[in-house]
Design a protein around this nucleic acid. Structure first.
Lengths: 207, 207
DNA sequence: TAGATTGTTAATCGATTAACAATC
DNA sequence: TAGATTGTTAATCGATTAACAATC
């Protein structure tokens, strides 16, 4: 385990991709997989996959490949998904509600434990067993429930304000669906789920 | 215009980000912006922004900066957003419905013109003025409406099947929200809106 | 043993950034 | 003119890939 090394962001971003396919293999009772097979399926170079995994340890066996279950366990450890991570969602609009109901991350140990919205129509409603709370209760709830990640699904115009409140409440990471760049202190991690940019850039490649 | 040059994907992906902020400036009646200001706001290196734009032409004025309206116009041309691009959405679940209602890309000239789903409960329902059609009508409708892009919001297990049908119907690009890698012919462009990977990789950086 | 596949080094490729002449 | 800022080159930095000894 070379955990002293600084691992690049591009490497970390591939780990969930590996994990997902490994889970699929596991469900099909496949015992072992090679970097070759992984690469084929995921459109990645096998050498890259081996190198990615080698940053974290020696998980494979020469001549054999990787034990599927063992590698799943290891990647989950690396991503810190061996513990439950509590998540709050802010913005109970169409997208927010969709993500709450999705809740497929639950099997990955990330669980939406609270939903916030300031719209009077929304407050008090129930979404997937969770009552929508006003933003004024965010600080208290986030601390009480040990929530460490916030998902922002409010309009772009409100995203920075919500981010500020999340930081203030002691959140450690943010997944921002609002189509805007937000400013947070150094120690807060922000990922962008920017599907409008994904869609618009697609137009460039047409025809 | 050095349009012969092969532009890298990372450059193209930043164009919608520029466009978005330029639109904001335009609405605030800002006439001119420097790469410095853009970089500040978007957390990007000013040299990178100048280089990105210079791939497509000389849009700025030395000593002055970029004319906001002119640059918006140019970026829209580059991304081919000066024409309307018709889009189909496949999978009228929570997420699909959310994206239909969103339809904020409409102002960017990408418009969802058809919605498909095979679930009997869904077929015939109306979502944002569009009637949900069965997949069996996809081929015909896509050709009739000149639809060039497909958004996949079905479960991962069905994504490849839907992608195959989209390709068969003559689609040119796909935005895939299903958490799985899909295989398509060389000439089809696929972008991934993989927010579960964004969320899981966030866990790595906590604490 | 022979075949397969890892972990890792070295080579390549591509992206970012600094620096600055050109010029508004 | 003096100050600001572009477009572009060169330097740096980082990521991908090929190749192969080690070994199951």
């Amino acid at each position: 385990m070379k955990s002293s090394l600084k691992i690049s962001e591009t490497v970390v971003r591939r780990l969930p991709i590996y994990l997902r396919y490994l889970n699929e293999l596991s469900m099909r009772n496949v015992q072992t997989v090679s970097s070759q097979e992984l690469g084929n399926r995921l459109d990645l170079n096998p050498a890259q996959i081996r190198k990615d995994l080698a940053y974290f340890g020696e998980f494979g066996k020469k001549g054999i490949g990787y034990d599927v279950s063992y590698l799943i366990e290891k990647i989950r450890q690396i991503l810190k998904l061996d513990q439950t991570i509590n998540v709050a969602l802010i913005g109970a609009g169409n997208l927010g509600v969709a993500l709450c109901n999705y809740n497929m991350y639950q099997k990955d140990n990330m669980k939406i434990q609270a939903v916030f919205d300031n719209h009077p129509d929304k407050i008090g409603q129930t979404i997937n067993h969770l009552t929508v709370l006003p933003l004024s209760q965010m600080h208290e709830k986030i601390r009480a429930e040990n929530i460490r990640v916030g998902i922002i699904t409010v309009p772009a115009s409100e995203a920075q304000n919500v981010a500020d409140q999340l930081v203030e409440a002691g959140i450690e990471g943010i997944l921002n669906f609002a189509p805007t760049i937000i400013k947070v202190p150094e120690h807060i991690r922000v990922h962008y789920a920017d599907f409008t940019a994904d869609l618009l850039s697609l137009a460039y490649y047409l025809e």
